[in-house]
Write a protein that binds this DNA or RNA. Structure first.
Lengths: 349, 349
DNA sequence: AACGTGACAGCAAGCGCTTTCTATACAGGA
DNA sequence: TCCTGTATAGAAAGCGCTTGCTGTCACGTT
């Protein structure tokens, strides 16, 4: 059998209670006793039984991080920053927490089920990253679940996701609308008047907000948008490639392509090149997020930098109660326009 | 207070035992009773207490996935594939498991602590991904921990990591040596005789094996290697950039640069371009892993494709006991040479 | 008519901890 | 000297669930 607290207690000639106190360090124990206990723990190679202690103490050291796609660096970077702050091992002593990343794959059901699973584990905190799914029923279900979690004492932080009012969750929202607007305004400023837009999946807040920003910029400059200039796709390179070909087919006179994110933009670049078009001489391209590889594209990508790591770190700290929540429980995080080689003045055909 | 099994039992007018059996579905319960119970569960919005059931049943539904760097798609892709197989939510019914990704950041201590944490949670299985750290003391500690886990009934699978003999762990190893050799042989075949090598961090099995493969290829073709042709760095773009500049400084006559992985190769490309060198006309570049962005580099990257998703999926299945372990508990997974635009014949200066 | 036999359901004993309350011992103060 | 305060250790009552074992019926058998 595995070693239990009682075994350690017997070996150290103390009561189980004392061993527990030594291990938790939340009660005075004479130095000599503590040493004896620690020695016994070491000799027996004792490992605390997590479930048992969680049950007895009615708390757990699990912290959940939900991401849409763990293979996407957008989420990887945030998750990494969050986890670093949660502590996990290596953090400050004592508060050793198991920060776990759960991959929803963008599926509403998985999202809910993971939340239930975390609720079941009595997680200490949960961080939800990335855009939310815009489905009334799903959102109501999510909100209800989140409310239940916060009511049970689990701290819930939304990182890069719109606020969920009246759920007790704290939100660190990305200003996708503002970023999208700034980006498109940059292109308009260069002289572009015919801009294609490759949007992400529909029914996603991120998709909608970025697109809204784009359109706001067009409207602000009196540019009438052709419905054919917008194509929806997934947040990946492949989708960007295909969408760009489609865009080109619909309107070869486009002088710029704005993508929902950097991966999509990369796909767009590939499609343009394969179509014999030069970037940015023939067509300008812009992305969003400024993931690490974006600067390595040729030409390097004009994009909006989102402070993913910083936001993640802050979300992690808030989840751990080490940083105060923003006033009103909501903070908006701005992006920064990064003008690089992929955008230039439109061709004068 | 939160709802407990007893509350549900009271409402459904049955004993707690019956509720438990309905929920676990591992004991005959009359259909009418089951329905009554399920109705009560629903009405009360009951969520099982994970720790309590783990304690009582002496098993948990947690599966741990250890990765070196979650922000790196290399690990993200594997983690995603593993998690998809583990089931997590969305998998086959009943066996709902919480697949959790733990980010070690490449730190030996974290690696060990996470293993302890998982052991503490009585994890059902653990998958360790990526290269191991080559430090005798650390390896001994890891092996001991792994042995303890397997002895306690936790299935341990190594994915892309060298076997750990006598620990009970199952290994799916990447043939880094073979891949490295094949890659370099490709370059030699093109006519290159002066090849720089940007290795990963020292004391890592992955680093060592890839480098060994490279050197084996050189040796096989009677090419004497200059010690200055190898530079060590991290597995990231930045490191590749700097290492390339250093390589160029040491020996401007190099006609090819082989990188430890694709990110490093991308950095190398950037450094070469910034130095006014064309790829592959002046210098050929090769990477390793074939991550999604590699095909989008300009020119697209010659590299060795590692079946990350496939290997991860298989590791996940083995961890879940849904696939038989390979004979001897060890399987080697081969990479595939992808010849693309970044490699060509050497310049004839 | 007596009895074995399934099919269910309930009892109750833990699982291995935490924590409240109580006990002991010794020190100092009156 | 007696009392009280302080520091430390132990006893024991759970935490909420699982599960072996013990009923209890309603039948089909002989």
């Amino acid at each position: 059998m595995t070693v239990t607290l009682a075994d350690v207690a017997a070996r150290a000639q103390v009561s189980p209670a004392t061993v527990s106190r030594v291990l938790n360090g939340n009660y005075p124990v004479a130095a000599s006793t503590r040493e004896r206990v620690l020695k016994a723990v070491d000799e027996l190679d004792y490992v605390l039984n997590g479930p048992a202690s969680a049950l007895a103490a009615a708390t757990s050291d699990l912290v959940g991080i939900l991401v849409n796609d763990i293979a996407d660096p957008f989420f990887g970077i945030m998750a990494s920053a969050i986890q670093a702050e949660i502590g996990g091992p290596g953090g400050r002593a004592g508060g050793e927490r198991l920060a776990v990343v759960c991959n929803t794959g963008g599926s509403p059901e998985r999202e809910l089920t993971y939340l239930t699973l975390l609720q079941r584990q009595r997680a200490a905190a949960v961080v939800l990253t990335g855009g939310a799914i815009e489905d009334a029923a799903h959102q109501a279900a999510m909100d209800a679940k989140v409310r239940k979690l916060t009511e049970a004492g689990t701290r819930v932080v939304l990182c890069g996701r719109p606020p969920a009012p009246d759920t007790g969750a704290i939100a660190l929202t990305f200003d996708n609308r503002g970023g999208g607007q700034e980006l498109t305004e940059h292109l308009i400023g260069l002289g572009h008047r015919r801009l294609g837009y490759i949007a992400g999946p529909e029914e996603r807040t991120t998709t909608r907000h970025r697109l809204e920003g784009h359109r706001a910029a067009l409207a602000a400059h009196g540019i009438e948008e052709d419905p054919g200039w917008t194509v929806h796709g997934r947040y990946d390179r492949r989708s960007g490639y295909e969408a760009t070909l489609e865009l080109l087919r619909r309107d070869p006179s486009l002088t710029a392509v704005v993508a929902a994110n950097d991966s999509v933009a990369l796909g767009a670049c590939a499609a343009l090149r394969d179509s014999g078009l030069r970037i940015p001489e023939d067509v300008s391209v812009a992305g969003f997020d400024d993931l690490p590889f974006s600067i390595d594209a040729v030409p390097s990508l004009t994009t909006v930098r989102l402070p993913l790591a910083e936001a993640g770190a802050r979300a992690g700290r808030i989840a751990m109660g080490r940083e105060e929540a923003p006033p009103g429980g909501i903070a908006s995080v701005r992006g920064e326009l990064m003008v690089r080689g992929s955008s230039g003045v439109p061709r004068t055909s």
